[in-house]
Structures are given as structure tokens and as C-alpha cells.
Design a protein around this nucleic acid. Structure first.
Lengths: 148, 148
DNA sequence: CTAGCCCTGCGAACACCTTGCAGCTACGAC
DNA sequence: GTCGTAGCTGCAAGGTGTTCGCAGGGCTAG
């Protein structure tokens, strides 16, 4: 039996390799993962895998539509599998917390962008910045001096 | 006569320096500028200014509320003066074009986030990714192989 | 004018990502 | 099964964007 992801890679002329399988499994296991985190997860099984392989593999997997990425902070992007529910990231700029909410909340906004500007929005790629409930209620005037 | 920006800095205990003035003027002149672009603009007047000073100055100016930044691509953030009209960036992932639209378009979305999730959205900090009208109408299957 | 501390320039360091290359391996052809 | 080749990987070096430590200099209060 041939798994769906193998099919997907072959369709696009890519080969099936242990590394590609491991990266895909890592992404699914982590739900949200930076390339670095994915590397660590993959290395639990295969310690020899290199970071550059992670990057190249993620690019391939994204190309064939098995994973997507979103820019949450300003640094590392986070990857997740496509069969997850489509969601939007709410990023608190004060405490760095990330909250996921259903994409439906933005439906009318997305529709307005499409109708008024002809812009097709990739809503899962968006990250919304602001302040979460907790930080808003406790308005101390210093932002996240805890280095994460 | 004391300019408004000087007042603003003093209020927060910061000093007035030529570098801070030049950076602020550069941001206002460029309307959208990365730190690197701001450096170039500043160096047209004062060639000795260093990049690290740009970063530190932008941090100070943002702290006192004279400039803000938004993450447009995945790389350099762009800074702009706060007296600009609040706007949202529409980023086309295919042709890299950036379009600015009035923040009002997202009003109901922002309201929903506030009411349903207690999240206070900094809408000008958001960048929305997707495909612009032109790229959507000409669906060629290669993305921006022109290296910008 | 003077003293003190903030601010700046400089260089090194850091984080994140990409690239060139040599060897290995998946996979179609036989 | 085995062979050949092109695609893939590991490694190390390099690139870009950003931060930090330090020593000297300039802004400001007194």
C-alpha cells in the first residue's frame, strides 16, 4: 500500500527518502514547529540528519502541498501539516503567547479583500499581532523581559 | 521653539541627538523603509552613522511612539512614522508586490477578535499574505523567479 | 563651565538560512 | 537481480540581518 504523501511526492517527480518521511512525521507530531525544532524531532530517530536537509525538505513538502508555513514572530517561520484545521495565529507582542483561532472569524474580512481589491488571501499564512487578554488587563509598562 | 518629537523623547528621559533627528526624518521621507534603507537615507546627510545606531534609534523612536514597524516579508521589517494613515499591507507571495489599504476594511474582524477573544489587535502591524489580482488572473505556475 | 551618564561608532558575535561540492541512494531500464 | 544516472544528503563555508560589549565623546543638569 502506498501512502498518500508518497503519491504526492511522486506526482511531482520527487523521490521517496527516509528524511522526507521523517520530516513530514515530525511536522505532524509537533503541530507547530520551526526548522530547528523539526530538526530536533527528526534527530530523535535519525541523529545524522542535517539542518540544511530540513530546509530543503520543507521546501519540497511545501511545494507539493503537504505542509505550509506561517510567519509568527520576526524570526523563524513555523511549519504545520496541511490536514490540520485552517487557523489564524494571534501573537501577543508583550508576552509572546500564540493563540490559534478558527479561520472562519476572518471570513468577512477575506471576502472584502477579494471583492474590493481582487486579493486572494492565504489566511493561514497571516499572523495577527497585538495584545492578548491577560496582558491587556495587567497593563504593566514593560514588555516580556523574560527572555522566552 | 521645541519640536514635538523632541518633547516626546525628553518626556521618556531620552536625549536629543542629531542621529535621532536624522533617523526620524529619514523614516518620514521614505514612508516605508527597512533599517538598511534608512541607513542609506541618513548617510546622505551624515555618512559616519552606523547601522547599529539605526537599530538602536528605531527601537527608541518606537518606544516613545514616533514610529512603528510591520513585518512584510520574512526578512527585514519596515518602519514608518505614526502620523501616517493607519493601513494594512497586502503582500503578494507570487510577485512580491505590496499594496496598502485603509485599516477600516478590517474593522469588523478586529471587533470580533476583541469581543470573542479579548485580543486587542495592532492592525497596522499585520501583513496579509496571498495573491494579488494580477497574479490570480495570470495563473502561471512559477513564482517570481525574477530575483526582485 | 563642569561632571556624569547616555549615546555612538566599531568590531565581533549571533541567529537564521543558503549554497557548492562530493559521495550516496532511489528507482527506472534492462 | 544489477546497473546507471540523476536526484538527494551531509558537510562546511558563506551570506544576510540583528545584537552586544566596550571605549570614547557629546548632551544636559547644576
Amino acid at each position: 500500500m502506498t501512502a498518500d504523501w508518497e503519491e504526492r511526492l511522486r506526482e511531482h517527480g520527487f523521490r521517496i527518502t527516509p528524511q522526507r518521511q521523517l520530516v513530514l512525521e515530525a511536522v505532524e507530531a509537533l503541530r507547530h514547529g520551526t526548522p530547528e525544532e523539526i530538526l530536533v524531532e527528526v534527530q530523535r530517530t535519525a541523529s545524522g540528519v542535517n539542518l540544511s536537509t530540513i530546509y530543503r525538505t520543507l521546501e519540497v513538502l511545501e511545494d507539493v502541498g503537504l505542509v505550509t508555513h506561517a510567519h509568527i514572530g520576526h524570526g523563524a517561520p513555523t511549519y504545520h501539516a496541511v490536514d490540520e484545521h485552517v487557523h489564524i495565529h494571534l501573537v501577543c507582542d508583550r508576552c509572546r503567547a500564540v493563540q490559534s483561532i478558527p479561520a472562519g472569524v476572518a471570513a468577512s474580512f477575506v471576502a472584502a479583500l477579494r471583492d474590493d481589491y481582487g486579493f486572494r488571501t492565504d489566511i493561514s499564512h497571516v499572523s495577527v499581532h497585538g495584545h492578548c487578554r491577560d496582558c491587556e488587563e495587567a497593563p504593566r509598562h514593560h514588555e516580556a523581559d523574560d527572555p522566552l
